[in-house]
Design a protein around this nucleic acid. Structure first.
Lengths: 350, 350
DNA sequence: CTGAAAGCGCTTACAG
DNA sequence: CTGAAAGCGCTTACAG
């Protein structure tokens, strides 16, 4: 697909028009030193006159880097809002740093041999991107595969799974356990004693949240009540299933810590159908601060995760890594924030 | 940021190792004709041995096209799910066509002079992308700006605003008016006579939906009831505001056609707070089929827009345009689909 | 079928 | 400060 328009004006044309050498034009283009004001003006005027736009491609080949990074989303059916906002953060930061972002998706199995993983062409070929940002579920085999082509990478740490300290990775993350610990402590401080946790702990990150909850309960001499298990279904259905379990309790919990907002939503809906009101009959906290949280009525008290910030820091970290490839591994833990809205009722001290 | 690893093996090294000329290596790389099986095997083996990965950059400079397109999102605060899914569709199709997608965001005013719009560098410099897909709100000045740099473009048509036939653009879209016409007809067929429309018609696309609704009403000799107006607030608040207006009616409508799901959500919530149940007391249809639709209880009957398909067709259309730049303008209208869920009650014929 | 050479559009020492 | 030349890693006619 050759485009006729592209045949147009190159640096040589500009040099000829300005009556100088191509080297001089190049120096003007790159704000290089050693160029007189008069010369610069002469060249600039020729550039304007010819409507010259330098060919980034040819520059990159000499500079040996691309000014472009790849945002790779793995094993997600679609770019749902949590990751879309991380991507948005990446783009914002990239744009400020005069970098470009390419978006690519990948589906792979954790059991595929590392060297059998078919990377998207943008990673497989050289000369596209300087580095890659991994989002979506990241297993060790993918990390190994990308390391095998010697392309710098950083990952959204909360979705890195099954590493077991076998090797390390540069990452930006937030602390699932600590955040859930604090959320649970808040609920307890509001006077609740029977506090249940609802979540599918077969997900690593939910398991971490469960442990944070568990710690908080124990630190207050309270017995954890786990409504866990592993379901194939969507989180919302999981919440609905769990609601039935909650109601069946001989002594019903007065509060529920849901592993994420989708589960909280399912719980809320199911409980309401059974005539249980939130927060009058049972209190509820979520995690992630997704759209659901504000759609609920009253709006959900939940742990806010700053998705755009995660994206920005991923971009920062990657650029840092590109600058100093031999630097030590870096793990950046971003704060979360419990946003108190309307779903936790203060219980009178009994 | 030069990376030592990049210094590594180039096509000349491979040629030397295989004892052939670089031309031959290149021909093998490109599946060119005129290369014997034995030769091919010899070269391939050298490539494997050296771990050679061709430099896409150097290839592109000769081929005069990039194999990459830009998804440009304009005037959106963040990549919310509607556009995220369009982007996902673009990526899916691009990947199948061996193309790459770069994501960029832009904020600009419709009143900025066309040549004053500061395009992102990825468009401003030559040699990054072959074409651009416009999403988010697209005004004539942006279209003109992009045309001025002679880069092929296609747009998500429903968000193109203020063109007034002054000039044309290749677009993929769906028919707002027709879709809303059909949704309204459906409501009428369920026995409703007093059907209101709720939407901020200062948005072009909502105005088109209003006209579709209006047509449908008139075609059945019914009087349109418009709860419109222009609000700065978010759609959900608009819906909540409109709910009060609906209740204040001397003869309350039995059904509401909401201009989109967010407005429908606001309506639903507000109505419920006032003790009006959906659909028992009032029926409701939305538009877009966003997340809200399934979060409502009962789930919302709404007009489904196939976002991934829009993305795929945008990519198809752009590639078509790259192949035949002189082709006539193309407008591709995609079907929508009324998904009947639980918010429209069938009224007994009276 | 294959090699040597010219060239893509740029940058960067190297002389002057 | 500036020009002419060499070179980045590849592809593509052109001879053989």
């Amino acid at each position: 697909m050759p485009r006729a328009a592209d045949k147009s004006v190159n640096i040589r044309d500009v040099a000829r028009a300005a009556g100088v050498g191509v080297g001089t034009v190049s120096r003007v283009l790159n704000d290089g030193p050693h160029v007189s004001a008069a010369m610069r003006e002469r060249v600039l005027s020729a550039i304007r006159q010819l409507g010259f736009r330098p060919n980034a491609q040819a520059r990159r080949i000499l500079r040996r880097h691309q000014g472009m990074v790849c945002f790779l989303l793995s094993n997600r059916d679609f770019l749902h809002s949590f990751h879309a906002r991380i991507l948005q953060g990446v783009e914002t930061r990239a744009s400020a740093l005069k970098q470009h972002v390419t978006f690519s998706a990948l589906h792979y199995s954790p059991r595929t041999a590392s060297n059998q993983i078919q990377l998207p062409p943008i990673l497989h070929e050289r000369g596209w991107v300087d580095g890659v940002i991994l989002a979506g579920t990241t297993y060790p085999n993918l990390l190994r595969r990308i390391q095998s082509i010697h392309i710098p990478l950083v990952a959204f740490g909360n979705n890195v799974v099954g590493l077991n300290g076998r090797f390390r990775v540069d990452e930006v993350c937030f602390d699932d356990a600590q955040s859930e610990f604090e959320a649970t402590r808040y609920v307890i401080e509001q006077g609740h004693r029977r506090v249940a946790f609802v979540g599918d702990t077969s997900y690593d990150w939910i398991d971490r949240r469960y442990r944070g909850y568990s710690e908080a309960m124990k630190s207050c001499q309270l017995r954890p009540i786990a409504v866990c298990g592993s379901h194939k279904s969507a989180f919302r259905e999981f919440g609905e299933w769990a609601a039935a379990r909650i109601e069946a309790c001989q002594r019903r919990p007065t509060a529920i810590v849901a592993a994420n907002d989708e589960i909280a939503y399912g719980l809320w809906r199911s409980l309401r159908r059974q005539g249980l009101r939130v927060p009058d009959d049972v209190s509820l906290v979520g995690f992630d601060d997704r759209e659901e949280a504000l759609l609920m009525d009253p709006p959900l008290t939940t742990v806010a995760v700053h998705k755009e910030q995660i994206g920005q820091e991923l971009m920062n970290l990657l650029l840092e890594k590109l600058r100093r490839p031999e630097a030590r591994f870096n793990k950046q833990v971003l704060p979360t924030e419990l946003v108190v809205r309307g779903t936790v009722k203060r219980l009178a001290a009994s």
